[in-house]
Design a protein around this nucleic acid. Structure first.
Length: 287
DNA sequence: CTCAGCTCCTGCGGGC
DNA sequence: TGCCCGCAGGAGCTGA
């Protein structure tokens, strides 16, 4: 489900419920997601205060005052939903004022401000882990991530260096989290359309000036999507329950057969499959 | 090292 | 109505 803009939107939505607040009780309703939960996860989380809620790539990182950080990945279908924020907190009465626990609600965080944060993930491609904050950067899930696309380390010269000599399609290269972290299928398609680059073009055969344009379209697309609260496909919601609305701004993603949005362009949006994922593009506007 | 293909899992929508 | 198929916002693993 979520790419960088959706994860960032979820993080921002979770701030009032979690940052600075104590996890009164964490409840696991099954033993695993993609992998088994870390040992004693309920006990290690319960009573810990969230000092900071951060994001790295598509991961939400909750730094705890016990010296550990909770790593959360939403996979394809993961959601974090808040209920009961600012409701009176009654120890032992966590169910009060909250909706019934539903199928696929795998983890519950009962906060000291009365909020319940519910992690729901039908497909269970999501993951959670605990790691000492001091060595978080070395965690296997985080250690090999490339730079943040909205950060200073991501720029034209960096991207050109990473793509140089690569025969793989630019679409596939941009989905490689080691090159740039946080992009997914939607925003790669959208950024390539804006840059006028065909998704199947060999990554190593793009001119420096077009790579410079690409870095800018990646950043602009992500910024606009965050501003719009992410994209709501199917039943994706923000942590607050609101819908994102960037899906209305898609120029190619999910628009197979529809007219290209470029004025006077006679082409329709096409779909091809690259390494198992759909790519949407305009054959006239993207070369 | 690179790269394509497979895999995990559930749900939904379309065609018959 | 039911069944089967393809598809879905991710990404680790395998084997060529």
């Amino acid at each position: 489900m979520p790419e960088l803009p959706e994860v960032e939107t979820v993080r921002q939505g979770l701030l009032p419920a979690m940052e600075g607040h104590v996890i009164q009780q964490a409840v696991l309703r099954r033993a695993d997601l993609r992998w088994p939960f870390p040992v004693n996860m309920e006990a290690r989380l319960s009573g810990a205060r969230v000092t900071q809620l951060r994001r790295r790539s598509k991961y939400i990182l909750a730094d705890l005052d016990c010296g550990e950080s909770l790593i959360i990945h939403l996979g394809m279908s993961g959601r974090m939903v808040i209920s009961g924020l600012n409701a009176p907190f009654v120890p032992g009465a966590f169910h009060f004022d909250h909706p019934a626990v539903e199928k696929h609600d795998h983890v519950l965080f009962h906060m000291d401000n009365g909020a319940r944060v519910t992690f729901n993930d039908p497909r269970r491609f999501g993951a959670m882990d605990l790691c000492a904050t001091a060595v978080l950067d070395a965690h296997p899930l985080l250690a090999r991530l490339g730079p943040e696309p909205l950060g200073n380390e991501f720029h034209a010269a960096y991207l050109a260096d990473q793509l140089a000599g690569r025969k793989t399609a630019i679409k596939t290269a941009l989905l490689d989290q080691r090159i740039v972290a946080g992009l997914g299928n939607i925003y790669v398609c959208e950024a390539l359309f804006r840059a006028g680059i065909h998704p199947a073009r060999a990554a190593g055969r793009i001119s420096a000036s077009r790579i410079a344009t690409l870095t800018q379209t990646i950043r602009a697309t992500l910024r606009e999507a965050i501003e719009a609260g992410g994209s709501s496909l199917r039943d994706y919601r923000q942590a607050t329950g609101e819908m994102g609305y960037f899906q209305h701004a898609f120029r190619v993603y999910g628009r197979e057969g529809a007219a290209c949005v470029t004025p006077d362009c006679p082409e329709n949006v096409r779909r091809i499959v690259q390494s198992g994922r759909s790519s949407f593009y305009c054959a006239a506007c993207q070369r």
